[in-house]
């Protein structure tokens, strides 16, 4: 097996420094919706200027380069142990080159490891064997500010009059956006999972964030819910950075997973505007990025 450490390093560089095209398009469209001369519009203009500067200079879009979350789909026969080692080497090298901030802190001693290598959960790596003959790796960098405003609801919720149905999900999602205000670096993107247990529900909410912003949910009921949540979250008027304005979220992605009869979780992962996710495909030894 070829050493793919340099390919992983390039994937990290790209994710940290170059915002994906779909996200940049959505931010450009959002500028036009904000009042000329408003703080919200000025914030979006600064954001877009920063996106261009980061890409041009290969420097991080945001200094909080987040938790690196890798999802690896590998053909049969690949060594996940070797892949894990290569990913960890690439993460340490990316930190050395200032593509990533050293972010792995020992929760007991408070000591920062300095190279982003923590225990087996840091960086986070999910492996899945696929039928494909290509290696496909998704990388998401999830910042701490937006992770802190994520929320999990257990329906029914009497405060929100939210029952165990899609109307209840709508209520939970709007409440989460209101609670977050500008603290998660609005305009944000909502990854929403319905069902699961507490753990799998949050994992599924992050998986939905791997979708393209402008795709359409194949389930018509969920597609409608996504549009409704997006439209109504923007009616809250939190606006870019929480300065007030028309754009509070850029989109919402909803996924339903199976649940126990007793549990009905709605898990909301809030992604900041610096929605850093990139994909690498390795076929016949050659890496391509998108």
């Amino acid at each position: 097996m070829k050493d793919h450490t340099p390919d992983f390093l390039e994937l990290i560089r790209l994710a940290a420094t170059s915002l994906p095209p779909d996200v940049e398009r959505a931010l450009r469209a959002a500028v036009e919706r904000e009042e000329p001369g408003s703080s919200g519009r000025a914030a979006l203009e600064a954001i877009l200027q920063n996106v261009e500067m980061a890409r041009a200079g290969s420097t991080p879009i945001c200094q909080d380069t987040g938790t690196p979350i890798f999802t690896v789909h590998h053909p049969a026969g690949w060594s996940t142990r070797a892949l894990r080692e290569q990913i960890r080497r690439a993460v340490a090298e990316a930190t050395h080159r200032s593509y990533l901030r050293p972010n792995a802190v020992d929760s007991l001693s408070g000591r920062n490891t300095g190279d982003n290598l923590g225990d087996e959960h840091y960086p986070t790596i999910h492996f899945e064997e696929s039928e494909d003959d290509a290696l496909v790796v998704d990388l998401m960098l999830k910042g701490g500010g937006c992770e802190n405003v994520g929320a999990q609801y257990r329906l029914p919720d009497s405060r929100l009059k939210a029952g165990r149905d899609l109307e209840g999900v709508r209520r939970a999602a709007l409440d989460a956006v209101h609670q977050a205000q500008g603290k998660g670096c609005a305009p944000g993107i909502l990854g929403i999972a319905i069902g699961g247990d507490r753990g799998t529900s949050y994992i599924a909410s992050k998986e939905t964030l791997l979708r393209q912003l402008d795709d359409e949910n194949p389930d018509p009921a969920l597609a409608e819910l996504e549009d409704r949540i997006t439209e109504q979250a923007n009616m809250l008027g939190v606006g870019p950075m929480g300065f007030g304005g028309a754009t509070t979220v850029l989109g919402a992605k909803v996924k339903a997973t199976h649940r126990l009869p007793a549990s009905y979780f709605v898990s909301i992962s809030y992604m900041c505007w610096a929605y850093r996710r990139r994909q690498m495909t390795i076929q016949a030894g050659e890496a391509a990025y998108s």
Binding site: A43, A46, I47, Q49, N50, M53, A54, G57, T59, P60, I61, C62, Q63, G143, G145, G182, C185, M241, F243, C272, W273, A274
Partner: peptide
């Protein structure tokens, strides 16, 4: 003073 969250390269300059 509120700085622009995420505008890290711009501010570093």
């Amino acid at each position: 003073f509120h700085a622009i969250g995420g505008a890290a390269t711009l501010i570093a300059k």
